[in-house]
Design a protein around this nucleic acid. Sequence first.
DNA 1: TGATCGAAGCTAACAACGTTAGCCAGCTCG
DNA 2: CGAGCTGGCTAACGTTGTTAGCTTCGATCA
Lengths: 168, 168
Amino acid sequence: MNRRSEVVDAAERILEREGPDAVTMRRLADELGIQAPSLYKHVAGKTEIQTALQQRALERLGAVLTAAGADLPTLVAAYRRWALQHPRLYELSARHPLDRQRLASGIEAAAAAPLLRVTGGNIAAARAIWGFAHGLVDLELANRFPPDADLDAAWAHAINAFAIYCTP
Amino acid sequence: MNRRSEVVDAAERILEREGPDAVTMRRLADELGIQAPSLYKHVAGKTEIQTALQQRALERLGAVLTAAGADLPTLVAAYRRWALQHPRLYELSARHPLDRQRLASGIEAAAAAPLLRVTGGNIAAARAIWGFAHGLVDLELANRFPPDADLDAAWAHAINAFAIYCTP
DNA sequence: TGATCGAAGCTAACAACGTTAGCCAGCTCG
DNA sequence: CGAGCTGGCTAACGTTGTTAGCTTCGATCA
């Protein structure tokens, strides 16, 4: 449709195929068969593209979580699965501040809703769960665990701890 | 002492004072009163500097955790405090893969030891705790929580969950 | 029909980045 | 004294994001 979204599409393709360092304005223009400066007819700059990708990631993750079950184990399992399937997009979306000015309103809340549902509306508990899910995913994506680490076991421990805690 | 460690010192100063983008080879050389190419007499490249800073962060955080109490709440409180006091260094150290070739051996284990102590040697549980602590810190440093969020409450929930779980 | 005007491309260029090559001063040691 | 290492230097290269300014094409409108 929009040429602008074609630009963001191309950026996403390059990001997932070749990693974040490959997402350069010239490489991106190349993917679209144009020259780098022409990109600025559709986009204010590179950071705007990143913000757009961040927004996409948030929407998709939110949708996946909403579609997933309503119990804690399946929810965080869906979180982990999506992050591992789209590692670059997840990193991009999770490691940078949200530009809440530019971000379409409601997206943040929509992504958070499934977590709030599972804690019965307890915001602090939802944040705690988000914290451990993001933390484990982030460390896993950054290869911070030894290659032979049993990460399923670590996830199981965290899930158990919160499951016991949330249903007293 | 070593000129190499003076380079790393300067990099750390710039990092904490002016943020990660300011740590450029020219800016770094400037801080030392020399020209950028001269840095390569002491250091292989920029990534080596980053690895050195990562190692420092790991050592210091490990020391802080070791000095902290042996119970879960004070341990994770120390983790959070150190990370918030040295946000750039923490991000640098936590978000990148470890170059286990170059990293002095034992450092990783030393940083992990206090966590293992608190879980009675249970590795999976220690990783789960590391996950939630890193996750909450990382999200907080990335400004991903609303400005008015009660993060102490989120930490308290996570700590409670694990405390109950670890001492059945 | 013909003039106008915006949309979307282009080339040339700039500053800043990491990095390499090659030169030179000065100190140490045989 | 001379050799060689240490630690500086300048010049330069390729890549990055970005700006300025020109052109071309299609639609709109008098």
